[in-house]
């Protein structure tokens, strides 16, 4: 069973009279432990595709199946539950909770879903942060972390609930090449180590070779 299957997904935005086609008949299948890089210029529809795959946006047309669940017709409430249990996001702008420490930023994901006990959640958060090289930064607030460290905390948060699918938007945009490569390597090892599927958006073709496969998108149209 593929981790993600988009079939003929179309997404249009209306702003005023104009209709913007952000995604046009996108069809994409990501296997269970596959890492797909999504490459394309700015405004091509990368974030839109990610948001639809993760249940943040509903498509105008088409079918979205994640881990065998067809989420195209889900209500807002069902989508909340779906996001909590099945996907992990790393947003383009990192978006950590500013008044929570690195560890708490991970644990809070568990608090919303109440999947495991506090102790267990804490242990998992620490293990993830440790693997991400943040063992000394667990008690720091986001404001006390560097850009790269924040990005890594966000990756940890995405993996916290053992999602079937991790969606990562521009993980390296704020980083220099070297740090960018480190972060990519981390993502790859974390995702592969957990046999989770991932879609990683980047407009930097150099980062794409970390993935199993690269898909390009131009003006909302996918091309393998």
């Amino acid at each position: 069973m593929p981790a993600l299957e988009l079939t003929n997904v179309r997404k249009t935005y209306t702003s005023g009279d104009a209709e913007i086609v952000a995604l046009d008949h996108a069809t994409l299948s990501v296997a269970e432990d596959e890492i797909v890089a999504l490459v394309g210029p700015s405004g091509s529809g990368k974030t839109t595709l990610l948001s639809i795959s993760g249940g943040l946006l509903t498509p105008t047309e088409g079918e979205v199946v994640v881990g065998g669940r067809d989420i195209s017709g889900y209500s807002a409430q069902q989508l909340t539950e779906f996001r909590r249990s099945s996907v992990g996001f790393v947003f383009q702008s990192v978006n950590l909770v500013p008044f929570l420490t690195a560890r708490e930023n991970l644990v809070v994901v568990n608090d919303f879903g109440r999947r495991r006990g506090r102790k267990e959640a804490r242990a998992r958060a620490e293990k993830l942060l440790d693997e991400l090289g943040l063992q000394r930064r667990m008690d720091n607030l986001p404001g006390q972390l560097s850009g790269g460290e924040r990005q890594r905390v966000a990756i940890g948060r995405a993996l916290m609930n053992e999602p079937d699918l991790v969606l990562i938007d521009e993980p390296t945009s704020a980083l220099d090449t070297k740090l960018g490569e480190q972060v990519m390597e981390l993502i790859v090892s974390e995702v592969k180590g957990r046999s989770t599927a991932a879609v990683i958006v980047t407009h930097d073709a150099r980062m794409a070779h970390y993935a199993d496969r690269t898909v390009t998108i131009t003006d909302g149209v996918l091309a393998a």
Binding site: L56, T80, E81, R83, R84, S85, F91, V109, F112
Partner: peptide
């Protein structure tokens, strides 16, 4: 919005 995106109701 971030809270909701990561699963808060």
């Amino acid at each position: 919005a971030v809270f909701k995106a990561i699963g808060a109701s």
